[in-house]
Design a binder for these strands. Structure first.
Length: 259
DNA sequence: ATGGCTAGGCTCCCTAGA
């Protein structure tokens, strides 16, 4: 099963590029972030016609996550538990009914800039809630994957110019520590389980010729539960998507699971 | 390189992104 994450930076703006990538890459399941659309404005028929089940958790203008799946989805839930007052659409869960069912959590983790400040406080609180959710899922001892735009640069090797990020919410010590706490619960960064070393990025800014200069960062991740990590076959970044027509500033990252 | 693009909406400027 090919399972991907892709921050599309607006479904309306990616109405050509997303179907093009789907037809080319043929993922079985895709978690989308930043659909920037309400549920009733999401072009679900377009993806249903391509053979996908569609589940959205949208919001007007900003944020918004969705799942496209060729396999049936069950037990869909929306919103990250732990704060009833949080109205930002950043989390959606479902069980993919593969031969071996897999729980997936599609996430758009808050950016957090400027830091320090209320936006950074929200980011850290959100990460603490996510850690609680992971702990609850781990108790079940079943395969699950948390995939999406984490807005976390885990290590210096995950940025072309790490010195430029030292004061940034994506790379501050508290951010990386919160990410590391998730890994330390027993989750596996799928990409790093298959590829070591610098030079692997999933985001290039639209500004300042970042793509042309390969000034990127790796912030889109798939974290695997121990039972999911046992199924890992392959993990890759589709970097060439960034060179296409009207690209998102992120590219897809995916895994192949033996499920 | 001093935020230099891009997207969306309460659109001809503002916020937000990373």
């Amino acid at each position: 099963m090919k399972l991907a994450t892709f921050n599309i930076n607006g479904i309306k703006a990616r109405i050509d590029a997303l179907p093009r990538w789907l037809a080319d890459a043929k993922p079985d399941v895709v978690c989308l972030q930043e659909i920037k659309s309400q549920d009733d404005a999401f072009p679900r028929e377009m993806f249903e016609d391509m053979g996908y089940h569609v589940e959205t958790h949208g919001q007007k203008g900003f944020n918004g996550v969705a799942i496209l799946s060729r396999l049936p989805l069950e037990d869909v839930t929306r919103g990250l538990p732990g704060d009833a007052a949080d109205e930002q659409a950043r989390w959606i869960e479902a069980t993919v009914m593969a031969a071996r069912p897999i729980r997936i959590c599609g996430l758009y983790l808050p950016n957090g800039n400027p830091a320090p400040g209320p936006k950074y406080d929200y980011k850290l609180a959100w990460m603490a809630r996510m850690e609680d959710r992971i702990r609850a899922l781990l108790i079940l001892e079943e395969p699950f994957v948390c995939l999406g735009d984490y807005n976390v640069i885990p290590q210096a090797m995950d940025a072309a110019k790490p010195a430029a990020w030292t004061e940034d919410a994506l790379y501050l010590p508290d951010t990386r520590a919160a990410f590391r706490r998730m890994l330390n619960l027993g989750l596996t960064d799928a990409f790093r389980a298959r590829e070591q070393g610098p030079g692997h990025y999933s985001f290039w800014d639209y500004q300042a010729g970042a793509w042309e200069r390969n000034n990127g960062i790796r912030i889109d991740h798939l974290l695997l539960s121990p039972q999911a990590a046992d199924l890992l076959v392959e993990a890759r970044i589709d970097r060439e998507v960034r060179a296409g027509d009207k690209p998102s500033d992120h590219v897809p990252v995916w895994v192949e699971l033996a499920a």
